[in-house]
C-alpha cells in the first residue's frame, strides 16, 4: 500500500510546493516591469514608445472598436483557438463598421506572450507545442495556473492598478494603431472570455482616461472580481450560462460580489442598472459545448457560437454613437 500512497503524496507535495512558488512569484512580472527592473522597461517619459509612424497606420474609421481578450488557457494573442477566431468573424459579419483588436495578450503586463522573449519562454513553447499535438495535458495545467494567478494579480487591489494600467497601455496603443481617434467619443468594448473578463474590467478606468472614451465590457463567462474598474464601466454585459459554474468562483471568493455587501463596486453598478447578466442558454465554460462552439446547438437549433455572437452584437449595437 505504501508503495502506491507514498509516491503519490510525494508528488502531491511537490505539486503544492510548485503552486505555492508560482503564486508567490506571480506579482513579480508586473512589479518588475513597472519598476524598470525587467528588460521590458518603460519609463514615464516614453509612455507610448512603440507606436509606428503615424502615416503607416491604417485608418479603419470604424464606429465601434472591439478589443478581444482571451481566456486563461492562452499563451499569446496570436495563438487563440479556431473557435475564438470563428466567433470574432461572426461578430464582424454582424457589425460591419466594427474594428476588432485581437493582438493584446491579457495575461502579460507588457503584451509579452508566454512563448515570447522571457526566461521560461522555452518551457511555455514546449508545453504549447505538446498541447497542439494533443499531448502533455498535465503540463498544460501549468499554463492555466500561471494565467489564473495573473487574474488574481489583476484583481488584487495592491497589484491591480499596476497590472491593469500595463495591459490598458497595450490596448490603448493597439487601438491607436487601429485608427482610434482620441476624444472621438466612439465606444470601445472590451470583450473578455473567462479570466479575460477580469482583465477587461480592470483596464477600463485607464482606457477611459487615456483615450477619453466611453468604455463598455462584454464578459463571456467572465470570472470577474469586485474590481474598482467597474465604477468606470459604461455598461457591463455579462453572459453566464446556468451550466457554467466557473464565474461563480469569484461570487464566493470576493466579498464585494456578495449580495449583502451593498456598497461594493459590483453591487452599486448592479443597482445603477449598469450590469446586465444574461443566460445565453445551456453552454459550458470551455471545451465542447462552450460559448464559441460552432457544432453544438441550442434547443432551438442555433449554434452556440451564433447565439453568443448575436447577443454580443446586439449589446454593441445598443451603444450610442457620437453625433457626427
Amino acid at each position: 500500500m505504501n508503495i502506491v500512497i507514498e509516491p503519490l503524496l510525494c508528488l502531491l507535495s511537490l505539486g503544492l510546493l510548485l503552486l505555492f512558488v508560482m503564486a508567490l512569484l506571480s506579482p513579480l512580472e508586473a512589479l518588475g516591469w513597472w519598476s524598470g527592473w525587467s528588460s521590458k522597461h518603460i519609463t514615464p517619459q516614453k509612455p507610448v514608445e512603440g507606436l509606428p509612424e503615424r502615416d503607416t497606420v491604417t485608418k479603419y474609421n470604424g464606429s465601434y472598436y472591439l478589443v478581444y481578450l482571451t481566456a486563461v488557457g492562452g499563451v499569446s494573442a496570436e495563438d487563440i483557438s479556431k473557435r475564438e477566431r470563428g466567433f470574432l468573424e461572426r461578430l464582424q459579419s454582424r457589425i460591419d463598421d466594427a474594428v476588432i483588436v485581437d493582438d493584446v495578450f491579457p495575461f502579460s503586463v507588457s503584451n509579452n506572450p508566454l512563448n515570447g522573449e522571457r526566461q521560461l519562454g522555452w518551457l511555455w513553447t514546449r508545453i504549447h507545442n505538446s498541447r497542439m499535438r494533443g499531448k502533455g495535458s498535465l503540463l498544460v495545467a501549468l499554463i492555466f495556473i500561471r494565467n489564473v494567478l495573473q487574474v488574481g494579480v489583476s484583481g488584487d487591489r495592491r497589484y491591480g492598478p499596476i497590472y491593469n494600467v500595463g495591459v490598458a497601455r497595450e490596448i490603448a496603443l493597439s487601438l491607436l494603431e487601429h485608427g482610434y481617434d482620441i476624444g472621438s467619443g466612439k465606444p470601445i468594448t472590451v470583450m473578455g472570455w473567462s479570466g479575460g473578463g477580469q482583465i477587461a474590467v480592470g483596464v477600463v478606468p485607464y482606457l477611459h482616461q487615456a483615450l477619453d472614451a466611453p468604455v463598455y465590457v462584454a464578459s463571456i463567462g467572465g470570472v470577474i472580481t469586485d474590481d474598482p474598474g467597474i465604477a468606470s464601466v459604461e455598461r457591463l454585459y455579462h453572459l453566464q450560462s446556468a451550466k457554467d459554474k466557473f464565474p461563480k468562483i469569484t461570487d464566493m471568493l470576493y466579498p464585494g460580489r456578495w449580495k449583502i455587501v451593498r456598497y461594493s463596486e459590483w453591487n452599486q453598478a448592479k443597482a445603477d442598472g449598469r450590469i446586465t447578466v444574461v443566460d445565453p442558454g445551456p453552454m459550458v465554460h470551455t471545451g465542447r459545448g462552450d460559448y464559441f462552439d460552432q457544432r453544438t446547438t441550442q434547443p432551438d437549433g442555433t449554434p452556440n457560437a451564433d447565439r453568443t455572437a448575436d447577443l454580443v452584437a446586439a449589446f454593441i449595437k445598443s451603444q450610442p454613437l457620437p453625433e457626427r
Partner: peptide
C-alpha cells in the same frame, strides 16, 4: 500606487495626443 498610476495614465494621454496631432 493609485496616484502614481493616475499620473502615468495622464502621461500616456499626453504623449498619445501629441502622436496623433503630428
Amino acid at each position: 500606487t493609485h496616484d502614481i498610476v493616475t499620473e502615468f495614465v495622464q502621461s500616456v494621454r499626453t504623449s498619445a495626443q501629441a502622436w496623433e496631432d503630428e
